[in-house]
Design a protein around this nucleic acid. Structure first.
Lengths: 215, 215
DNA sequence: GAGTGTGAATGTATTCACAGCA
DNA sequence: TGCTGTGAATACATTCACACTC
């Protein structure tokens, strides 16, 4: 009954639902309709998304916020701590670092890597910074599964290569280039400049306002 | 022949093609096959994406890099300068600022807004910083169409509201919350923490490696 | 001969609508 | 009666395959 064919987009939306569920009372009752209203989506889509991962609600009663939250977290693998390596401890890296620290998230940045000698050996926002050549050793020893690349574009691919060599499982690339990795490593290019580049298109062709609060 | 029904995702991919085209010689001949190879996608998809916007190639010859680049830029509205307002001049804001300045992009950050008195009145990376109450005046006077929100989550919605009041056309929200805006404003939530939150799911269920270099 | 541009075929995601349970 | 969970219907996106042009 669970997990036959999961829409590639369903998982990412679960994390969205999660964010809302974290902000409301644990014991609160909530229906797919109310959740949809709050998030600007449709009730059917929420129920369908949830159905890919299991059955979490009670007919005629809806969902209980805290319980649903737990179950989604479990489905996404967020019921344990995920150590992270940060490659490139510049402005962007530190901005993301702040975000991850401030939330009581399940992600912990365990090591930073940077070529800048002024940073190596220091702690930045509580994170020890190493030279990239130490990556394989540290990532293996600390069993770090996820790497975030916040290096400049020129260094992105070599950062990815190093992470792969180090045995990383997944890579999130925030630099404005795409990186290519072997298929046994999960990678995601989170590219905000390309998001910016399409905005003019939507503004110029603003007849396209069929679906309202979208993204 | 142009622009009947454009796949919502086609536009964003064009900006990707663009990035590659900017890196090669203007006069270079390139086929959809070669472009696909370089970008890790399929030739058919590229041709289809391009076909939504016009006819850019020559049968048996392929495309000419510089010409194709120009035509895509025109199709996306990137053939002119787009002024931008940056709301929240913290680490994240400055990181994005660096990115936009370093590229010879068509985007120009014309004003920054921040509540921090130490920043107001100063120039940060060449951008003058104002108090948010000045937003309506400045955005109107400078005719700024796009706003980027890089404020903390708590301030994101009020930042969006201010931008809307100021007559902004499009909003890119980089804070880790969603913002809701009226349907006549185009908004896009670029949410990287939710990208991180699904990574564990993909790592745990790593049988899902059907499509290789994806994102 | 080589490579575009595009209808037709397939695959995937979203929405509808309702049976079934509390 | 109210709301979930889900097959069936629809809408949308991608891929295939080939007619057509240089």
């Amino acid at each position: 009954m669970t997990q036959e064919r999961v829409s590639e987009n369903a998982a990412i939306r679960l994390s969205l639902y999660l964010r809302y569920l974290r902000d409301i009372r644990e014991e609160a009752r909530i229906s797919s309709e109310q959740l949809a209203e709050a998030l600007g989506t449709s009730a059917a889509r929420i129920r369908k998304d949830l159905s890919y991962f299991g059955q979490f609600g009670t007919p005629s009663k809806g969902y209980i916020a805290g319980k649903l939250r737990h179950q989604i977290e479990k489905a996404l693998g967020l019921d344990r701590v995920w150590p992270i390596a940060l490659v490139g401890v510049g402005k962007l890296g530190r901005a993301l670092l702040d975000n991850l620290i401030s939330e009581k998230s399940r992600f912990r940045i365990r090591a930073g890597f940077d070529v800048n000698p002024d940073k190596i050996g220091r702690r930045i926002a509580g994170v020890k910074v190493y030279h990239p050549y130490q990556m394989p050793k540290i990532i293996r020893n600390e069993k770090i599964p996820i790497g975030m690349i916040t290096a400049p574009a020129e260094a992105a691919q070599e950062s990815a290569d190093l992470l792969v060599i180090s045995g990383i499982k997944g890579i999130l690339n925030f630099s404005p280039t795409r990186v290519v990795v072997p298929s046994y490593v999960r990678s995601k290019n989170v590219d905000f400049t390309s998001q910016l580049e399409v905005m003019p298109y939507y503004i110029v062709n603003d007849r396209d306002l069929r679906r309202a609060a979208q993204d």
